[in-house]
Each structure stands twice: as C-alpha cells, then as structure tokens.
Design a protein around this nucleic acid. Structure first.
Lengths: 226, 226
DNA sequence: CCGCATCTTGACGCGTCCTTGATGCCGAGC
DNA sequence: GCTCGGCATCAAGGACGCGTCAAGATGCGG
C-alpha cells in the first residue's frame, strides 16, 4: 500500500486530508510540525510527502532539506503564500510540486497521482558495491567485505547516502552540509571532517589511506567505487 | 544541453518562452499546434515539454497521450482554464505539472528545474575532451591522456572551470580574477600567471608550448580544445 | 530519573595551498 | 643596441584546511 506522510499543523485540514486519502486506500501518517515529520519519516519511510510550509517549529525548506538528505520520495508543498519567490525557493530546495491554499481536494489527489506515477518509473538499482563494503540505498544497510552489517548512526548514514548517490562526482562541502544538516549549517566544515573520519574508520580497509571516500582539499568529498 | 519543446499557439507567449529559456542555456524547439508538436518531438526527442492545452487543432489530452505513447519526458501543462476538472484530466492523462495562466516566468522555470531534476536520466555529461586531457565539469574531475586523474587545487580547478565554460572565447584578466578571486583582486595579474603556469604544467603535454591554455598578451587567456 | 548512544565543540600537529618576491626571457618602442 | 613592460618560472613564508583525539552537551529509551 502506498504510504503518504501528511505534515500539516492545522488540525481541521490535517483531518480532512487524512480522511480523503484513507478513503482512496492510501496508508496515511500525520505530523503536526517539522521535527515530528522528520522523525516519522525516518521511522516509516513514506512514498510521498504532503508538506505544509507554514509550520510552527521549522522553516519549510529545512524540512525539505532534511528529507532530501536521504529520501527521494516526492514532496508536494502546500502553502497559503502564493508569491512567486516562495514557490521558486521551495521547488529549488527539492520540492516536486507547489499547491496554493485554498486548493481543491481533487486537484491535490491528481497531483499526488502524477507524482507517484513518476517515482514508480524512476527506481534505479540502489545497491553499490566496492571491494571493501556494500551499500544498499533502498534497505538502508551497509555490509563489510565479509557480509557483516555495519552499524551507522543516522548522521553517518545521511552523509554516506548523499555521497553514494553522487558516486564519482565531487560533492562540495556546502552541498553536503546543506543536504545532511540543513541550510543553516553550510559553514560548519568541521562536522564533515569528524563524520567522514568516522565513516572511513568503519568502512575503509585502511582508514588512514582511504580508497573510496576521497578528500578533495578545499572543495569537498567524493565517493568512488574503484 | 537540455532540450525543451515549447508548444504554444499564441505567438507572443511562444516568443517570450523561447527567449527566456534560451537565456538560461536551454536548447529550445517550438511548435504552434499539436500535430507539429508531435512531429517535432519524434524528430528531436525533447528532455521536457511545455504544453499549452488550448491548441487550435487538437485537444490537449490527445497531445499528452501522443507523447506518452513513447516518451517519458516530463510534460508541464500551461492553461488558461483554472478549473479543477481540467487539471485532474490533464494530470491523469500523463502530465507532470499544471500551471495556470497568467503565470510568472520564474515560477515556470523553477517548476521546469524541478521536473528535470526528477528525470535524472536526462543528464548530459558536460565533458570537454582535448588530445591531452579531459575535463568533466559535473563530476569536477580532470583526467590526463592515459585516463589517470589529475589532482588540482581549488583555485586551479576554479580557474580551469571558468576557462572551459568559455571554451574558445577569450576571457579577460579582469573577468578571470573577478570570478576566481573576487572583485577586490581584479588587478592581481600575477596570480593568473602563477596559476595558469601550474595548470599548464599539470595538463599540457609540453607546458612551455601550450596548445590549449593560450595566452592572449595584454588581454587575457583562452581555452581551446584543438 | 538515570545511562547510553549520538551529536557538538574544542585543541593540536601536520601537510598543503596561497601569496608574494626575485629572476630571466621576450618583444615592442625609442 | 638599449630600455621597459608583460609574461613565465621558481622558491619560500605563512596561513589555512584536514585529520585525529577527546571531552562536554544533548537527547532518547528504559
């Protein structure tokens, strides 16, 4: 069954969305603020997210960034703000669609179907194997050479996932920090050093001579398979 | 380069769309009616389609169906009709997004970027190859003739990137310094000599006789592939 | 309320990179 | 032939970034 995460602080609308979606045989999880949305999403990864931008606790783009760090599930943004700049910011942050309140339930459902149709066809092989370890992006698991699972903390996994998804490409400090920690942490390069070091210690055969998690001095990091 | 097919019968809007898209480095094909749109799409498969529903010769959903028969390129629908049923019909027919006229150009461009981001398969590799080395702008990698990666420092890479982006064109000292070091360094021509020399030493077959990183005395530098 | 895992923050040594100066070369102009 | 300005090359210093270790904070589950 398709799992929808509804993030909406207004109780009435939240209920209405949940009822309508459940009536169409979707499995619905709800959250009233950004923090619980991210928690719920990590606990039960949704297939699509309906996200109200006007949340009490976090900026909407931070929620988008938090989700995009590890999930490609379509994000449909709801907002009372019809201004163009708001739409551009949300879409460029990683949202897939932007619906202005008030909206019709039929339209939202149609946009939801369109988003799901796309993501159904866009599934690529989410397993990447190196000589030292294997990453399964779908199952969110990492195994070492002998097949033993490797324990990663949530942040370690976020970071690894972003790097693996851009395999071969150089990912800038700024982009990594933005996708894993959010836009407000774009200058905290020290976080990267600490967590890259931890990943290397857990994954690389010789952590002091990394072969897959490569430093590009002054620019960022790169994951290479060979 | 990303190819956009614009299907719009109104000449003014068609021109405006084409101009704006070309200004953003998209490759634009235009069509004024459904039949020529389908013909153009089959001749030159687009990466994304911007489709006005109010065409003179065919119903919009027919055009969508005609495209969806063989192409998965995202379709962004433009329409003057804001009614919900129209949106639902178009989206369920296979459209990816529905924008109501009048719309802002920035919003359309943002929705276009969002659509393209999803169809990750449509990414051309912006790779520039010379006989001595190969530059991959997306992955930020440089390889020499034997395929070995070349290590560049951040400043070296930044400088090379600007030159390669303007391949064939002459880039003035002032512009290079401005883009790499910032506006306050526009007179530090010495920096350029040092770093161009380093790039030549790392990339050119015969650094003292450069064939790709060319000095234009008194003006600037130029990158040429052949 | 406590304990543990995780995240954040700090300090330090080391290596690399940026900046800057010195020197030689070449061509243009006098 | 000489001088001068722009360019190429080399070298050295100091600054900065990176890796590493470890000690507080923080938050979560029991």
């Amino acid at each position: 069954m398709t799992r929808v995460l509804v993030v909406e602080d207004e109780p009435g609308l939240r209920r209405a969305l949940a009822i309508n979606l459940r009536a169409r045989q979707y499995e619905v999880a709800v959250a009233a603020d950004g923090a619980s949305a991210l928690a719920a999403a990590s606990r039960q990864p949704p297939d699509v997210v309906v996200l109200d931008l006007g949340l009490p606790d976090m900026d909407g783009t931070e929620v988008i960034a938090g989700l995009r760090g590890w999930s490609r599930a379509p994000i449909i943004v709801l907002s009372a703000r019809a201004g163009e700049p708001d739409k551009v910011v949300a879409l460029d942050a990683g949202a897939d669609d932007y619906v202005t309140k008030p909206f019709g339930m039929d339209e939202l459902l149609a946009r939801l179907r369109a988003a799901l149709r796309r993501s159904a066809t866009a599934q690529d092989a989410p397993v990447v194997a190196t000589e030292a370890f294997t990453v399964d992006l779908a199952a969110k698991t990492v195994k070492d050479r002998s097949g033993e699972p490797v324990r990663l903390t949530p942040t370690e996994w976020h970071l690894l996932e972003v790097l693996v998804r851009n395999q071969g490409k150089l990912v800038a400090h700024r982009q990594l920090l933005n996708e894993v920690w959010g836009p407000r942490y774009e200058t905290e390069n020290h976080y990267l050093r600490v967590y890259v070091a931890q990943l290397r210690r857990k994954l690389e055969a010789d952590p002091s001579r990394p072969r897959h998690l490569i430093t590009e001095p002054g620019i960022g990091y790169r994951f290479v398979v060979a």
